[in-house]
Simulated scan of single mutants.
Amino acid sequence: MSTGNQGVVGAMRVDLRRLHETWMELVYPRQRGAQDTVLGTWTPDSQLGMLLYRVWSALGMPIIAFIYPLVLVGTILRFQTRRIGGTATRLGLIGVVVLSLVVWGGLAALARFELDLVAGGFTAIAIAGGVATLSAALAVGFRSIGGRGTTVLFAFPLAVTAIFLPPVVAALFSTTVAQYVIPGSDALASWILLDLLGSNSIAQFLEAEFELEGPAYIIMWLGFSFPAGWLLGLLVTLADVVRPTE
């Protein structure tokens, strides 16, 4: 147990050092990973320069203390997203589309011929499956293009959309699904307007101009999925910067 704890503490020390070096390199050259090189870490050669250097170093401490928990969250998320991404890579774009169609098609057939859901149940599942398939295909397509920016801007949000949006679409066509999805959507909207945005002008504008019903739920969840996907992508990127992998 002691060895394991030392390993965790040692990894955290490496993370914090990399974070601090990255902070220092925003202003000063040759800071990140330069400690063990021939030239070593760059430092100023004047008293004033060294004073400013130390002030900048001290300013980074509270920022690093705030960022590091996000790095740990990003590391956990990176493990899960890479498992999903690895599966998508092995399947390929066509494989992901075919798998999604098989799964959602099976659910639609079950609803149509076996479960005999309320009126609109088959249509709800079929349309939700189409939304999930399209979102997943676009996410895999953007990921295959490559590049961190493309992945964060498009692949992550579309992957989140593929998870969250289909139940909302299904709720518009099935009262059975709606009784579970709509109350949760209303609660999320209330939290965003009252707690997250507060009483600012954006919240007042949204509350005055938009009534949450019908397709407005889809727009709301799209508006939620993209920022959530961007946040997920940024956390994973932060983990890659601080704790790179092979």
Rank of each mutant, 00 (worst) to 15 (best):
R13S: 09
R13Q: 13
V14R: 15
V14D: 12
D15Q: 11
R17I: 00
R18Q: 06
R18P: 00
L19S: 07
E21Q: 15
E21S: 08
E21D: 14
E21A: 11
W23S: 03
W23I: 01
W23A: 02
E25P: 04
L26S: 10
L26E: 08
V27K: 15
V27Y: 05
Y28D: 00
R30N: 13
R30Y: 13
Q31A: 06
G33T: 01
A34T: 04
A34S: 13
Q35M: 08
D36L: 14
D36A: 15
D36Q: 11
T37G: 04
T37M: 08
V38M: 13
G40E: 01
G40I: 05
T41Y: 00
W42L: 03
T43G: 07
T43K: 15
T43Q: 14
D45E: 11
D45V: 06
G49A: 11
M50C: 02
M50F: 08
M50Q: 12
L51I: 14
L52I: 09
Y53R: 02
V55Y: 03
W56C: 03
S57I: 00
S57P: 00
A58H: 03
L59D: 03
L59H: 02
G60T: 00
M61V: 15
I64V: 14
I64H: 02
A65P: 03
A65V: 11
I67Y: 03
I67R: 02
P69K: 07
L70P: 01
V71N: 07
V71F: 08
V71I: 09
L72W: 10
G74L: 06
G74P: 00
T75P: 00
I76E: 09
I76T: 10
L77W: 05
F79W: 10
F79T: 15
Q80N: 06
Q80K: 14
T81V: 09
R83H: 11
G85Q: 05
G86N: 13
G86A: 11
T87C: 12
T87G: 11
T87W: 14
A88M: 10
T89P: 00
R90A: 13
L91T: 01
G92Q: 01
V96C: 13
V98K: 03
L99Y: 00
L99V: 14
L99C: 07
L99M: 13
L99Q: 07
V102S: 08
V103K: 02
G105P: 09
G105W: 01
G106N: 10
A108D: 00
L110E: 02
A111S: 15
A111R: 07
A111W: 14
A111H: 12
R112C: 06
R112F: 13
R112Q: 14
F113E: 10
L115I: 10
L115K: 02
L115H: 08
D116G: 13
D116L: 13
L117C: 04
V118D: 15
V118I: 10
G120E: 03
G120I: 10
G121F: 06
G121E: 13
F122C: 07
F122V: 12
T123R: 13
T123V: 12
T123P: 00
A124V: 01
A124T: 00
I125Y: 06
I125R: 02
G130C: 06
G130T: 06
V131Q: 05
A132G: 08
A132K: 04
A132Q: 05
T133G: 03
L134T: 14
S135Y: 12
A136L: 13
L138N: 01
L138W: 06
A139F: 04
A139T: 08
A139L: 05
